[in-house]
Design a protein around this nucleic acid. Structure first.
Length: 753
DNA sequence: CCCGTCGTTATTTTT
DNA sequence: TAACGACGGG
């Protein structure tokens, strides 16, 4: 064993070590939040290579985010250099690799690109001309969901997705149209490989020959299609190949993507699906202090549908989480700002902090307050760079260069800037294109249709064709060759050397960014968007320039082009590498925090209707609860939770009730600040408050009052507790609040009738 | 083709 | 409230 690996092994606890060293049967690792899951997977990869005799390319590890994949690869390579040859990818990126290899079996172009949700809607509309935009959006969404469940237009289970009798046809029309573009959508990246593996035994055999180990991270968020893919990739040994070693890692308590087709049942039933499974639980938590973990545990134990495990804190008691009731969202933002600035004055960096919220819209009040108070912040995952108009325009040119059958990209840019080629002309071209049995090329069809066009359109078409000719002729063609990692090829060093020398023939003084720059210039997009910038004071040209810059890492060839497009399509999170080290507060939705940790966390908006979102019950409510659990377990040292009694929603100010999750956490979980709403008191204390309702002082029941923050109301209860007077007030705006009048002199007053 | 105005509609979204 | 899409007049 290498010294490095021995060192990393020595860092593990007993369960972690067991998980790393286990072999011989399927393995399910139930890894609680902060239990060193990534450390286990990466060490296991290194261990398999260096101790168990696996070749690195026999190992496939899949994750859900590009970031996680990158981190996993980096850390594995640190321990075992050969791990750079292991395939560590996202599910979708694996699917993309697979489909480029078996593009003929899949019936797609080898140079396919991936259509996003917007493109799907457009294609649904084109394939089903009768649909209104709204219907098309809904159908596109359902098609995605169907693919997540691996359902085809003729699958009986499709009725579960949509009861609309037309839906199967809509789906079928869409599929036909999609296939004629040669492209795929996100769902296809998983579903098509499953279908191919089921249909072609030799492909299945090749895969089980290639991959001897398959590991899946965040398994609780896998969907049915991904489960099927895993199933198909695994050999049970009956095909003559050795059985595949399967190891999945996940936490059923952190399953938060049901709405996107994720199926917790995958992890709950894993042991039934893979007989003989060994189960290892990682319950020691290295991230959070005990009081934070207790709170998390209290919350999630309200769920029924779980395997059940208890996290054990490794870091001592720590501070009790603080629950603060605030009057409204502006004061909530101010409260956060004060916390952060107060800590900053004592030397706590902004970096330590994350503000978590349920919906993106909630970031606004924090942004304006932080701007005002000069607190640096970064909003994670909001306005998506790649969804901006100018970027999509550029990408459309890039995609059309890669795959000239791409109808959606073609339509997007043929008339932008305007070249008198409106929708009618486009329809004509696409119709002609689709007539041909053998896949045609949209540019060539346009060329061939020029004689039949009006004079104006003809000029525009000539211009467009000339642009495309220049671009397509520009890049040197390089075969997208599968890196040949069979044992033979790797053993044959001469061949490897040959391959290397072949690679170096590419003009390395040029980068793909030169090509992207050229697109900007010769297509007229730069002028077009510069004009828009003038009018609307936008940053479109600057954004385009940023896209150019990001292409600098890619080869100046058709291969580099495909890799660049893949990179963008399979990772839409625009995390600026430069900004990564900056000292900023993180503003982030709860969903986006998965896998992250922060020393200090504020979970905001714990109000009924916001979190949990209204109309949630049963399993959906359990998912919301898990989301809260995920949020709580992000915190290392300090956890703050806020709840407002009023909130502006859709332009209307509403009274809010505290989230039921607060009461579920129990009264011991938090130190409570701010005036507690009556309903919270009731639920937490289990009442007992109603005992001493003796009218006292001037605050008799029935007294009309006015409160600065909540407006007019009536005292409904009045009693004494711990020697202090407590009143309940029912406000006209609908909510009830509890006050200690002694401390509300400045904002609470009696009013005359 | 461009621009203003009106009406509609508001989750979460690794890929 | 605000943001975005649809529509109609210039």
């Amino acid at each position: 064993m290498t010294e490095v690996l021995a060192h990393y092994l020595s860092l593990l606890n007993e369960q972690q070590k067991q998980a790393v060293e286990h072999s011989g049967s399927p393995l399910l690792i139930l890894a609680g939040a902060g239990s060193g899951k990534t450390r286990v997977i990466t060490t296991k990869i290194a261990y398999l290579i260096s101790e168990k005799g696996f070749k690195p390319w026999q190992i496939l590890a899949v994750t859900f985010t590009k970031k996680a994949a990158k981190e996993m690869q980096d850390r594995a390579v640190q321990m075992e250099g050969q791990a750079d040859q292991s395939m560590i990818r996202t599910f979708h990126s694996f699917g993309s690799w697979f489909l480029r290899k078996y593009y003929e079996e899949a019936g797609v172009a080898q140079n396919f690109t991936v259509y996003d949700d917007d493109d799907m809607v457009t294609l649904v509309s084109k394939a089903n001309p009768g649909l209104e935009h709204k219907q098309a959006t809904s159908a596109a969404h359902k098609i995605s969901l169907a693919k997540d469940y691996c359902l085809l237009p003729d699958s009986p289970g499709l009725a579960e997705i949509s009861s609309d009798p037309n839906f199967p046809d809509i789906y079928k029309n869409y599929q036909n149209r999609l296939r004629s573009t040669g492209n795929v959508d996100f769902g296809d990246l998983i579903m098509l490989p499953v279908l191919i593996l089921q249909k072609f035994p030799q492909v299945k055999a090749q895969m089980s020959y290639r991959f001897k180990v398959i590991m899946v991270d965040e398994y609780q968020d896998s969907n049915i299609a991904q489960f099927k893919l895993l199933r198909e990739l695994c050999s049970d040994g009956s095909d003559g190949n050795e059985p595949t070693y399967v190891c999945v890692v996940g936490d059923d308590d952190q399953s938060i993507y049901k709405f996107r087709g994720a199926e917790v049942q995958n992890i709950l039933n894993f042991q039934d699906e893979f007989p003989g499974t060994t189960l290892i639980k990682l319950e020691r938590n290295y991230r959070s202090t005990a009081k934070i973990l207790n709170c998390a545990d209290k919350v999630v134990s309200n769920n029924e549908d779980r395997l059940g495990k208890t996290l054990i804190a490794d870091r001592g008691e720590g501070k009790k989480p603080v629950l603060t009731f605030l009057p409204n969202q502006d004061l909530e933002a101010k409260f956060c700002a004060d916390l952060i600035l107060g800590a900053h004055a004592k030397g706590v960096p902004f970096n330590d902090w994350a503000i978590l919220y349920r919906t993106n819209a909630q970031s606004l009040s924090f942004e304006s307050e932080f701007l005002h108070q000069k607190i640096p912040y970064a909003v994670i995952g909001s306005l998506k760079f790649y969804e901006r108009e100018e970027i999509k325009d550029m990408l459309a040119f890039l995609s059309l260069c890669a795959n000239p059958r791409d109808e959606i990209s073609f339509r997007r840019i043929i008339n932008k800037p305007t070249r008198s080629l409106g929708e009618k002309t486009q329809d004509k071209i696409v119709e002609e294109f689709r007539k041909n049995e053998v896949p045609e090329n949209l540019i060539e069809v346009t060329r061939s249709l020029m004689p039949s066009m009006s004079k104006k359109a003809k000029e525009g078409a000539a211009q467009f064709i000339s642009i495309m000719d220049q671009l397509i002729g520009e890049l040197p063609y390089v075969e997208i060759q599968e890196e040949d990692l069979s044992e033979q090829a790797l053993a044959d060093e001469t061949k490897t050397a040959e391959q290397k020398s072949l690679q170096t023939k590419i003009d390395s003084s040029k980068h793909l960014s030169d090509f992207v720059q050229k697109i900007m210039e010769i297509t007229g997009l730069e002028e077009y968007h510069a004009a828009q910038d003038e009018i609307a004071k936008t940053q479109k040209v600057a954004n385009m320039q940023e896209l150019v810059n990001s292409a600098v890492l890619y080869e100046y060839s058709t291969k580099g082009l495909i890799e660049f497009i893949d990179h963008i399509e399979l990772d839409r999170t625009m995390e600026n590498e430069e900004d990564a080290g900056a000292d900023t507060v993180t503003l982030i939705t709860l969903h986006n925090t998965k896998g992250l940790e922060f020393p200090r966390v504020v979970i905001t908006g714990l109000e009924a209707g916001i979190f949990p979102r209204q109309d949630k019950s049963g399993s959906e409510l359990e998912e919301e609860r898990r989301l809260f659990y995920v949020g709580i377990t992000r915190a290392m040292d300090e956890l703050y939770i806020t709840s407002c009694s009023m909130r502006r929603l859709y332009g209307r100010t509403q009274m809010m009730e505290p989230s039921q999750f607060l009461a579920e956490a129990g009264s011991e979980s938090f130190k409570v600040l701010g005036s507690k709403p009556a309903s919270y008191e009731y639920k937490v204390a289990g009442s007992g408050l109603g005992n001493s309702l003796k009218p006292k002082g001037e605050w008799a029941v029935g007294t009309k009052i006015y409160h600065d923050d909540y407006g007019y109301g009536v005292v409904t209860k009045n009693f004494e507790r711990e020697g202090e007077m407590v009143i309940f007030v029912q406000f006209e705006s609908g909510g009830t609040k509890t006050f200690l009048p002694e401390y509300q002199k400045h904002s609470l007053m009696k009013v005359k009738d």
